[in-house]
Amino acid sequence: MSDAAVLSITVNGEPRRTTAATIADFVRELGLKVAKVAVEHNGVIAPRSTLEDVRLAEGDVLEIVHFVGGG
């Protein structure tokens, strides 16, 4: 049953385990709003419009960023 599979992925440099099927699912699992973040998936930007569709795979590397205060 692939949907229930536990995947080991790397998120912002840290190892995580998740059962989320897509990037958007995973972002929500973290408690974040998909509309407020940008995601790099294995070194390539994942366009916002695709976040609901891109499926996570074992060993995936994600960078999830947002805006913070800065000069």
Binding site: N12, L30, V65, H66, F67, V68, G70, G71
Partner: peptide, 18 residues
């Protein structure tokens, strides 16, 4: 101006700039 940084995945409930 705003900076782009990794989200805090250990405490995602923290307030954000937006």
């Amino acid at each position: 101006t705003v900076a782009v940084r990794r989200v805090n995945i250990s405490d995602p409930t923290q307030p954000v700039l937006m």
